[in-house]
């Protein structure tokens, strides 16, 4: 059967595209890291800003995924029929992620509401458990 080997465009133009995508991926990663550091540096940050930054990080993550799949994995240049066989099954994730995270949150609320003991226990401050330290355990057994 006939198929193309995807050698469209000339070598230097393709190389240029690769470096452009590399630059975009690096920039997106740097912005993600800036947001990450921002959340770390400001422990007193309000919940609203924190969730906005986390949402932005997820959008940046998805755009990085798009650039890798579309350009590095070359999916953008395949036929539409083929792209759809890959993309359509993945759309189910939209529902799966929403349903599972909602379920997790609902379980938390139900348990806090009905299991008073669990709720009280999860408020007790703890000390760092030093006994489970893997290093000390090693010495005890004399390895």
């Amino acid at each position: 059967m006939e198929y193309s080997t995807n050698s469209h465009g000339d070598y230097s133009a393709i190389k240029k595209e690769i470096w452009k995508v590399t630059l975009i991926l690096s920039l997106l990663t740097i912005i993600e890291l800036v947001f990450g550091f921002w959340i770390y540096a400001q422990p007193t940050m309000g919940e609203g800003l924190k969730w906005t930054l986390k949402g932005l990080i997820i959008i940046l993550m998805l755009s990085k995924a798009f650039y890798i799949v579309a350009y590095f994995m070359h999916l953008k240049h395949e036929l539409r029929t083929f792209i759809m066989t890959i993309i359509l099954p993945l759309i189910s994730f939209v529902w799966i992620i929403f349903a599972f995270l909602y379920d997790g949150n609902s379980f938390k609320d139900l348990r806090n509401g009905f299991d008073r003991h669990h709720k009280a226990q999860s408020k007790v401050k703890a000390v760092k458990p030093a006994a489970t330290h893997n290093n000390t355990k090693k010495q005890e057994h004399g390895h």
């Binding site: 599972f100 995270l101 997790g104 379980f107 938390k108 806090n112 408020k123």
Partner: peptide, 9 residues
């Protein structure tokens, strides 16, 4: 994600 959402902390 589900387990993290179901944990209090």
């Amino acid at each position: 994600g589900t387990v993290r959402f179901s944990a209090n902390s």
